[in-house]
Nucleic acid binder design. Structure first.
Length: 492
DNA sequence: GTTCCTTTGAAGTCG
DNA sequence: CGACTTCAAAGGAAC
């Protein structure tokens, strides 16, 4: 078991390094003795179903997870001075207690939303919830309420922290608690640990629980920001402006991947000495792709709930409200990056040389990160039917999938170019071995906006299964409908 | 002290 | 409607 995991994880790292030439850390990791020469690529697909399952969610579904984990990596304590915040006691999946989906929403009789009729027949995207549906999402019986943790992280401090950071002085004024319906109110209050529940405001229900999404530190007092009450206006522009300034900064609800990251980050960090979020996020991105449909569905569902609750708590909130809150520097840079995609390759070398300190610095000489996270981490143990695995959960971004490079590791054009090259190299080397892989040699359906010019024909014509998880992502559903989307999109 | 990096997804803007 | 942009988390690196 441990070997199996090590194998898959080793391959994850290898693949990661292949696809991330700039990432020194992983290159180092992959060349480390722990991972070197563990297994041949062709051997991986032969993992038994049991091994596959056990590697999937060792902390959630697989009883023998502890064994797996223990055998494959040293205790986090050995790797970091930091207290392993992630390892939940009892090895319970960190997310499991957060939501009810684990036993209800995802039971055979109650498929995930994206797999159910809730999917917009028109777009294939899970349709937005109707207000009338809000309650059913929290079908908490009075007796059960107190036992079921809040589905949303911000209500259940994870690892000692709420999903959303709280203002230093605590919430003065919660979110529009009054706007909450009965079920919501009970949900919130019942799931909030007493010490976190702000004292009831005079005249306010006990549900005066601060929403972690509110991060405004400057909010002095005033119990319910008038700005949050749509009906209340008739104020001078100045006043309104002033109030808006005071208006707490309500953060965006976390999407599925963010939720996944939130949950898994600490685990990854704990299991390896990596600390740099950028590198961690890359790993998490890879792991995300390797999740099965069911696993991803959990997070999509959770994210959907979060959005619902968020919208209910902040009916007037819009993502636009947060626009411009961040520094422009980044935006400008991103813009410039977009505009200068043509020159990225030229600057590739410069960027590479200017790249951050190799992540290897985080790796103790004797204890490299040999198993960043998980048990299901290997891309090789990705669902036998990647297309199915990606179909629904990713559906929401079906149209989005092809526009914003869902392909991980491709944020930067230069990276993308390198990715293409390395992918090609990898593919040609692995093509033979993958013909009988999980996908049965089915083309991964490349759809990413890779610089086609730099991608060898082999990459497009006979891509093996392995990289599929890298490129498929959300694009798969689209590609299922339009197998030639690559060409089509490129034509655009 | 501030911004960047890096990931995916949702939602915004713009043409 | 498609393409593009921004923000959400996170924490070390870089400036």
């Amino acid at each position: 078991m441990g070997d199996a995991f090590t194998i898959t994880w080793a391959w994850t790292l290898r693949a990661y390094a292949w696809f991330n030439p700039r990432n020194h850390l992983l290159s180092v990791l992959c060349s480390h003795g722990h991972l070197r020469g563990l297994v041949s690529p062709a051997a991986v697909p032969f993992l038994s179903p049991v091994q596959y399952l056990q590697m999937k969610w060792p902390l959630l579904d697989v009883p023998s997870s502890a064994t797996v984990k223990d055998t494959r990596s040293p205790s986090p304590a050995h790797l970091s001075n930091k207290v392993p915040v992630v390892q939940h006691p009892h090895h319970m999946h960190p997310l499991t207690p957060l939501i009810t989906y684990s036993n209800d929403h995802f039971s055979p009789g109650s498929p995930p939303t994206h797999l159910s009729p809730e999917i917009d027949p028109k777009t294939g995207i899970p349709r937005p919830p109707h207000p009338s549906e809000l309650s059913p999402y929290y079908p908490l019986s009075p007796g059960a309420v107190g036992q079921i943790p809040h589905p949303l992280g911000w209500l259940v401090p994870q690892q000692g922290q709420p999903m959303y950071s709280l203002p230093p002085g605590g919430f003065r004024h919660p979110y529009p608690a009054l706007a909450m319906n009965a079920s919501m109110s009970s949900l919130v209050s019942s799931r909030f640990s007493p010490h976190m529940v702000a004292p009831a405001h005079p005249g306010l229900p006990t549900s005066g629980i601060p929403h972690p999404a509110i991060v405004s530190p400057i909010v002095k007092q005033e119990p319910a920001p008038p700005s949050l009450s749509p009906a209340v206006s008739a104020k001078s522009p100045v006043t309104v402006k002033k109030e808006e300034e005071k208006k707490p900064h309500v953060k965006k609800p976390l999407n599925a991947f963010m939720l996944y990251m939130k949950e898994m980050r600490a685990k990854v960090v704990a299991e390896c000495t990596l600390k740099e979020s950028a590198a961690i996020n890359q790993i998490l991105g890879r792991k995300w792709h390797n999740l099965s449909r069911e696993e991803q569905a959990k997070y999509y569902e959770l994210a959907r709930k979060e959005r619902q609750l968020h919208s209910q708590l902040y009916p007037t909130w819009s993502a636009r409200d947060n626009y411009g809150k961040k520094k422009k520097r980044k935006r400008e840079k991103q813009l410039s990056q977009t505009q200068s995609q043509q020159q990225v390759q030229d600057a590739e070398g410069a960027l590479a040389s200017k790249s951050k300190k190799p992540c290897v610095q985080y790796l103790p000489p004797e204890k490299p990160c040999d198993s960043p996270a998980s048990s299901h981490g290997s891309m090789l143990d990705s669902p036998a039917t990647p297309s199915a695995a990606l179909a629904s959960p990713a559906a929401p971004a079906a149209t989005h999938s092809e526009q914003a490079q869902p392909l991980s590791l491709t944020t930067k054009p230069e990276t993308r170019a390198q990715l293409a090259l390395h992918s090609a190299a990898f593919l040609s080397a692995k093509a033979a071995a993958t013909s009988s892989g999980p996908m049965g040699g089915q083309p991964p359906l490349l759809s990413r906006p890779l610089p086609l010019g730099s991608v060898p024909a082999a990459l497009l014509t006979s891509p093996p299964s392995f990289p599929a998880t890298l490129h498929a992502h959300q694009a798969l559903p689209v590609l299922q409908a339009q197998p030639l989307s690559l060409v089509t999109k490129s034509a655009h």
